[in-house]
Amino acid sequence: MRSMILLAAAAALLGGCARNGDFDETGGIRLTRSACPAVAIPAFTGDVTSFDPPQSREARAIDVVATITNLRNTCNSATDPMTVTATFEVQARRAAAGPAREVVLPYFATVMRGGTQIVSKQVGRIAVRFADGQLRASAPGQASATVSLAAATLPADVQATLSRKRKAGDEDAAVDPMTDPAVRAAVQKASFELLVGFQLTQDQLAYNATR
């Protein structure tokens, strides 16, 4: 699962410098960056399928399918350390209606730095309760983490390079500052992500990756 986490974290890193708009009021290009961690679901960990019998992988043996959706985040960057909270919903469907039933699903919340370093990881559980005779059910979930504001803040010179206005006609107007290896390395070092997904077994992960 580590490779899937790294894949998602790398994608989040590329979006670390967000655009407030292509041009500002003077015609200059504006780039902004938030110190708050990005929040994402790593590839192949956003859904889980259980089978009955467990060893089967046939479609007719599918018991319950659950998906993490509506992922949102809040972040307080006015404090050090910062607190970032991800809220989400787990939507589940069972293959056949039956009596009321509860399905407990484990999920993880991992803080990554620079797309490669695992800073922390927590595992929680969320209970989805199917009402009598109902095929669908959902449950809210939440994950929180803290990140050092100092560690997530870019050096002043790098911040100046990223935020400097570039007007059409300037020699470097069309040059992305992220193409500078030093700038990119600094942004990578200061970039954190909170990744949320189902805590899958190797078999479950392989099923998601190959279906």
Rank of each mutant, 00 (worst) to 15 (best):
I68W: 07
L154W: 07
R164Q: 10
T85H: 09
V103T: 13
G133M: 03
D52T: 05
I29L: 10
A160W: 06
Q204K: 01
V39K: 10
V48Q: 00
G28L: 07
Q122N: 14
K167R: 13
T161M: 08
D47C: 10
R164S: 12
I29H: 11
R136K: 08
P155Q: 09
S144M: 00
A160L: 08
F44G: 00
R57P: 01
D180Q: 13
F198L: 04
A95K: 04
L31M: 04
T201A: 04
G115S: 07
A38R: 01
P140D: 07
T67C: 05
S77D: 11
A182G: 03
T49K: 12
R93E: 14
P53Y: 06
P99S: 10
G169Q: 13
L71K: 13
T67G: 06
V187S: 08
N70Q: 10
L200S: 03
A10V: 04
I126P: 10
R101K: 09
L149Y: 01
R60A: 06
G46E: 11
A18D: 11
V196M: 05
R129H: 06
T87L: 08
N20G: 08
M82K: 02
A156T: 13
G169Y: 13
A78V: 04
G197W: 12
P155H: 12
G28A: 15
L105T: 00
A168R: 03
